[in-house]
Design a protein around this nucleic acid. Structure first.
Lengths: 124, 124
DNA sequence: CCGTATCCTTAACGATACTG
DNA sequence: CAGTATCGTTAAGGATACGG
């Protein structure tokens, strides 16, 4: 991973593959895009990302923090107060993910129609 | 999924979640971005997407075809000749995915450095 | 309140043999 | 050539109880 040996996601063991999976995984996308709306505490983020378990959200946030995309700010109060936000890189990533999600959400009727046609040909 | 009931990926059973997973899954991203470079035959695509099994590539392409992102063109010759390409929607999606991949590939040194720091704090 | 540890179930995945 | 079918393994994921 240098100027002479650039990252290439098409290569089997390029470390970029792991980051792509952290970022674009089922919960990674949603966590990043949610945090792009602003900082969240753990429980609030869990409510925002409907359906995620504590275990998976925790795991996802750690992976994103490890890759330098998410900041974890712990205040040593009682009860504990932990706030999650994005780094500059995380914010840039979230913007690009949001662009992808916007396209999907905006094309959902077209996609559902394509599915119906595909299924009627395969199933009928 | 209408103008009054728009898709919302944050909601647990919105059908957009399934498409997000098809598109952003481990092999979905790579297949779409590869096809954005041009049309591919099955075997060539398999070589391009280093590490994918026949089973997973086939499954991935079917899911993307079903969502209206990929076109499968079968020529009834012997031996068979099948060519995969993108629809307009697939092409638009691939562009956005490529933007995400470019950011990751271009930030790989920064990401690896973040990992080293995280690991030295957690592991040391 | 913020998680981690544990257990368990299910689904993803890869290898490979085989067919049109 | 382009897959599908089958099988065995591994990993992801959810529920939940408990610790800091």
């Amino acid at each position: 991973m240098t100027a002479r040996d650039p990252a290439d996601v098409f290569t089997r063991d390029c470390p970029s593959r792991a980051t792509v999976e952290n970022v674009s995984g089922k919960w990674g996308i949603l966590a990043l895009v949610a945090l792009h709306e602003g900082a969240f505490r753990f429980s609030a983020l869990r409510r925002r990302v409907d359906g995620v378990s504590e275990r998976m959200l925790s795991q996802t946030l750690h992976a994103l923090e490890r890759d330098g995309l998410v900041i974890r700010d712990v205040r040593s109060t009682i009860p504990p107060h932990v706030e999650y936000s994005l780094t500059t890189l995380g914010s840039d990533m979230a913007k690009r993910l949001k662009a992808m999600i916007d396209l999907i959400e905006g094309s959902m009727e077209e996609i559902l129609e394509a599915r119906r046609e595909y299924d009627s040909r395969a199933g009928g």
